[in-house]
Design a protein around this nucleic acid. Structure first.
Lengths: 209, 209
DNA sequence: AACTTTATGTACCGTACGGTACGGTTCGCT
DNA sequence: AGCGAACCGTACCGTACGGTACATAAAGTT
């Protein structure tokens, strides 16, 4: 009987290798991610890598999938939440989003996917999109829908509202960090930015008072 | 006497080569941008490339600088513009921004810079940042300042206001396109998105009525 | 205990690319 | 015409990397 880790289709050993590979990627960028280096770091043979993941592209895809599968879903919004609870949930989302995209791992994975975006139709971007962004997007969108249903928000299109919230929260921080610019990731700034964004969002989409 | 093109420090010939190289980059991504391919496409010798640009990194930097130098500044905001003119100028900015970041050239350059961001301190990201984003940012910021001075906007911090405008306009479109997802770049959608963003911005920062 | 499976480690191959060297050619200058 | 600089085309070198082959060792199975 397979251990419960069959969820992503990888064995424990393979997952450990993928994690080591991700470590390498984070600290050295894609150029550091050679098959030889991975084998050395993970204490396995190149032959095993190719047996398990097919080729280098498959390995990269596996790394991205692996990490994407780690995204932990937040709690579902309660059916009877108050306006304050909605507000708090939104701020929590904003803060968590900013924290995530500022993280080394997120930056490394996004850089990798973007670098591969032009060539080879392995579609790392699609994996990231689907497992990461889309997932939390859907979740937050349902939160917005609920807020709308409870009369706290006016939104014609929750999807659109979510998109606006995203823009207000992230602004140009993500691209700046991807380009290598130093980000102002002091926890204080980050918290303030999240609060400001949510305040503006409520100003746009909050029920008229 | 040097022709007037001395502005960027490159000769006509060198600029032509850089343009050809950019073409290659746009249509094939970074992997297509080998020194041999550039020399072939541009009809020059590899030796000249190295003589002119030092090494491959220098060449990449030159490509980015070259393109960045092409950014054409918009008209300065008039001192006596009306609220409608400000609104129109903002919409124009929003549309132009969306058009730019959806363009093949912009995407290719951003991908290149992001790919290089982890390694080698050539700082393509810094060049892009400085010549592209920061420039139009400064320009639009002064526009906002003027709008503020004329009483059309209330902004404590124009920098902050600009950042918000950017977020409202771009949302998550940029990263989506960088990751390879198909963008909804139909001119209609684009125009609508720009108008919506500016409307929301005015709602947040417009003078109270 | 023999056998199969799976994995390690190392050595190897082919290729692609960055960078250099060199002979030949064009072009401008005097 | 003669000279020198810039440049082209090509060949070349070293290296790094993706991918494969193989020889060996651990571990489970019967």
């Amino acid at each position: 009987m397979p251990t419960e880790q069959e969820q992503t289709g990888f064995t424990d050993r393979q997952r450990a290798v993928l994690d080591k590979a991700l470590e390498l990627l984070v600290e050295g960028g894609e150029k550091a991610l050679t098959t030889a280096a991975i084998a050395r770091a993970a204490g396995c043979s190149k032959e095993s890598l190719y047996k398990w993941f097919g080729d280098r592209d498959g390995l990269l895809a596996a790394i991205v999938s692996r990490q994407a599968s780690k995204v932990i879903p937040g709690a579902d919004p309660a059916n009877d939440m108050s306006a304050e609870q909605l507000h708090a949930a939104l701020e929590e989302f904003a803060k968590s989003l900013l924290e995530t995209i500022s993280g080394d791992v997120s930056l490394a994975l996004n850089r990798l996917a973007i670098g591969q975006a032009s060539k080879s139709e392995t579609g790392l971007g699609a994996i990231l999109e689907k497992s990461g962004r889309a997932r939390i997007g859907r979740q937050t969108t349902t939160l917005l829908e609920k807020g709308c249903a409870l009369g706290y928000l006016r939104c014609e299109d929750p999807q659109e509202a979510y998109s606006t919230l995203y823009g207000l929260v992230v602004r140009d921080q993500h691209i700046r960090m991807l380009l290598g610019g130093t980000a102002q990731t002091s926890p204080k700034d980050l918290d303030l930015a999240a609060k400001t964004a949510v305040k503006q969002f409520i100003e746009l989409y909050g029920a008229r008072d």
